[in-house]
Write a protein that binds this DNA or RNA. Structure first.
Lengths: 107, 107
DNA sequence: GGGCTGTTTGGCAACATAGCCAAATAGCAA
DNA sequence: TTGCTATTTGGCTATGTTGCCAAACAGCCC
């Protein structure tokens, strides 16, 4: 039945994964892996409303993935946990498997 | 503005991450990393309704993370992409950062 | 102070997800 | 065929997420 401690652990982990489970947020992670960026820069690259971008950043900040630093009237974000970049390689191999499955399906 | 190809890539990646962004599904991945399990076994460990477990499995199968194999009247699931196990260590370090942040906040 | 730029927050409507129940399906054995 | 076990699917409601707009807030310069 999964004891409460174990359950809490998997819930905490899921919370972090959720914070990464959005295309925009994955893009931000990728971008921040190359250095800090201010919200304005990210917003220009992403193209969504500024408030939308800000909320995405807030989600990842709360999750502990990124950090913010105010300088003047700008806020710079940086990647706290570079190891998340290692996810991409593995995710790519999942995508390959999926692609292979689709190919098989189509014969 | 992010060109369509790049956008599609991050959307595909997010789809895989989403399939992992749930405590039950992370538990299943962890369990399957120790060997194949049938739905019934997983259901017993998880404690949710059988249909709920089945749907979680279906989501991960569609994502390309796990595979199913029918033997007799049972269906056995196995982990297709063991590298997802490497996520846990990194997620743990995110959780540590979050814990440290909380500690600081409380003084 | 007022006006400007940059960012966050609140609110809301659209959409997606989760989990339960009930019903359907599949395999096996009598 | 019937009956039994194992699993999936459909349908529903409750809950969570997303993204926009508008409003608030913060820092700077006049």
């Amino acid at each position: 039945m999964m004891d409460p401690k174990t359950k809490a652990l998997f819930e905490a982990r899921a919370q972090v994964m959720k914070a990464l489970a959005h295309p925009t947020r994955l893009f931000v992670v990728d971008e921040l892996s190359r250095g800090e960026r201010c919200v304005n820069e990210l917003q220009q690259m992403i193209g969504s409303d500024m408030s939308t971008v800000s909320k995405h950043l807030s989600i990842m900040k709360t999750a502990g993935i990124i950090a913010d630093e105010k300088r003047g009237n700008q806020v710079f974000y940086s990647l706290l946990v570079p190891c998340v970049m290692n996810f991409f390689g593995c995710v790519e191999s999942v995508l390959q498997i999926k692609a292979r499955q689709t190919t098989e399906l189509l014969g």
